[in-house]
Amino acid sequence: MNDRRPDSGLGKDLIGLETLSGDTIRAILDTAEPFKEISERAIKKVPVLRGKTIVNLFFEPSTRTRISFEFAEKRLGADTVNVAASGSSVVKGETLVDTARNLEAMRIDMVVIRHGSSGAAQFLADRIPSNVINAGDGQHEHPTQGLLDLLTIRDSFGRIEGLKVCIVGDVVHSRVARSNIFGLQKLGAEVAVCGPKSLIPAAIEDLGVQVFTHVEDAIQWADALNVLRLQLERMNAGFIPSLREYNRVYGVSQARLDRAPVDTVILHPGPMNRGVEIDSDVADGPQSVILPQVTNGVAVRMAVLYLLAGGAPERAEEAKKGEA
């Protein structure tokens, strides 16, 4: 299966959205549509990946992404193994290249990797014949999160082209931000980022995004806000003085949203810090699509797994019926 190049335009691996074409991204989103329905069934399983072995290799703690991948894999009938960094050979000092060689020796079909270093997914993909899916590498990319955000935005607006989407918060440390920027731009959206300059990476304008330092301006501008998690560590490392001040200056509150010219759609990749980057009335309010994002996450990951395994986008409908 490894030398098959599916019609989606996806290569052997999914490392990031930066290198994908708009057509490929659209093909993944279109493939995800029929897979949404599987999760609504009483028996949530089709045999698309029967006999395939997948390792979920998580060098960083993750609950949501790991579970989402695991559901996607199991609902497609794959055999999966979860490896977490704690208690694994990594703790015993094994290098990533040795981990890669051992996986290769075990002849697994796919690896889903989450790693704290930017470039780790590419590093692994360059060294093993298995399909590699990046589940987040350092501050680089988190492509399936980007795809599920795109799918959710498309569900909300019926389109992506021409929309204005602003990513708010800790952009400098965010792999979600980068995948969103690349993916949204390729589908024709305008992208901005908003946050204190201490949390905005250098020369981000060169990526074609606008920078807002006032969240009120971002809200005036945007059709949708993707609100990033603000981690407590950022305060301790001196990027911001306090979470309280962050909420006061950058927190997405209903009062701020009420001044927007449109009903701004609110996304959040989770897990949320309620009362820090987002207020509860927004998170739980009618403009929030945070839970649909989670539902779409499973469908998007099923689509990626299916396509990397060699499935054709146009046959996804049959695949979900168990016919392909």
Partner: peptide, 8 residues
């Protein structure tokens, strides 16, 4: 810009 794109 390169560091920003690569997340380094």
């Amino acid at each position: 810009a390169v560091a920003t794109a690569l997340g380094l």
